[in-house]
């Protein structure tokens, strides 16, 4: 786990960042659309190849162990009583669902093939790394961030554990660990509840030009990572080859994780629930906001036009 930072340090750093960033000249440059050279990275997961060996699960835990929470107990009392304590620190070996210590798990799904054969598919499940991730965009503190390579991650030094990211995630991926993080230095009784954790696609390995641990270790080469356009093309070819189906191209406006399955996703039978995400169609959750952005361009023009119109009308009246 990363070392905690103090409230003073957090506020000082935040306001310094705010002042320099907003007052500075770089903000226009900062809002950089992804260009061709910085095309998001996408992982393509060929479900038909996965044998459910869980090598990826353990490799993920090993590679990210230094980021895991190490809470001190007892936890501070939180008010009101409805605030849930979510403690997975004594259940770190749970691997049949997502937890703050298991960012990737194998989901079992049964299905019937076109030939009528009953099969069991094993599906590596983790954060989908949405192209426009609501967990990042709607975080009220900016604790979650999206990088230009398309991965999204939560900064454990800033996250207060309010779990909004989980609520707005169509798959409810992020998982909370109580008793760690910045909230302990602020108002632990009245605000915050720990830190949210999820797959960060081994950003520290990607920065070094390496592959994420789950991809690196897989004996069946279930996953492939590459530029979005390349992976979409490959997914289409793979789907055509196996007469299969794709998940992730349209879901939530497109994700940077693409699954290819030999069976339609709506015919897969699997457990869902807490920490066990679904594979249902998902509408673009950020679309309404994006559409309304246009209204914010039109509104001031309309307001100014109305004022000019009113003024012109009165001038005519007075003339």
């Amino acid at each position: 786990m990363s070392s905690p930072i103090s409230r003073r340090h957090f506020l000082k750093t935040s306001f310094f960042a705010a002042g320099t960033a907003i007052a500075g000249t770089g903000i226009a440059k900062a809002a950089t659309p992804a260009d061709a050279d910085k095309e998001p990275l996408v992982t393509l997961i060929d479900i038909s190849r996965c044998i459910g060996c869980e090598e990826c699960v353990y490799a993920c835990q090993d590679a990210n162990a230094h980021k895991f929470a190490d809470p001190k107990k007892p936890f501070p009392r939180m008010y009101p009583d409805r605030v849930p304590v979510e403690d997975w620190s004594d259940r770190r070996d749970v691997t049949d669902r997502l937890t703050p210590y298991t960012w990737l798990y194998i989901q079992y799904a049964s299905a019937t093939t076109k030939e009528g054969e009953n099969i069991t598919l094993t599906i590596p499940r983790r954060c989908m790394h949405c192209a426009n991730p609501p967990c990042v965009k709607l975080c009220p503190w900016g604790a979650a961030k999206q990088e230009t390579n398309g991965l999204s991650r939560i900064d454990s030094q800033i996250c207060l554990g309010g779990s909004k990211c989980k609520t707005v995630c169509p798959w409810e991926i992020p998982q909370r660990q109580t008793g760690v993080g910045l909230y302990l230095d602020l108002l632990p009784a009245f605000a915050g509840n720990g830190v949210m954790y999820k797959c960060d696609r081994c950003y520290q390995k990607i920065e070094k030009g390496e592959q994420p641990a789950c991809i690196e270790v897989c004996p069946e080469e279930v996953q492939t990572i590459g530029k979005r356009s390349d992976m979409i093309r490959k997914a289409s070819e793979l789907a055509k080859e196996m007469d299969g189906y794709i998940y992730g191209l349209e879901e939530n406006g497109g994700t940077n994780t693409i699954y290819v399955s030999p069976v339609p996703f709506d015919q897969l039978v699997y457990d869902t629930g807490k920490g066990k995400p679904h594979l249902n169609p998902v509408k673009d959750t950020m679309a309404d906001g994006s559409n309304l952005a246009l209204a914010m361009v039109i509104a001031p023009v309309a307001g100014a036009a109305a004022a000019v119109g009113k003024f012109y009308k009165q001038m005519k009246e007075d003339a």
Binding site: I27, G253, A293
Partner: peptide
């Protein structure tokens, strides 16, 4: 909040 727009984390 628009798609494919990245701001630095500090900003």
């Amino acid at each position: 909040n628009l798609s494919l727009v990245y701001f630095p984390h500090g900003v």
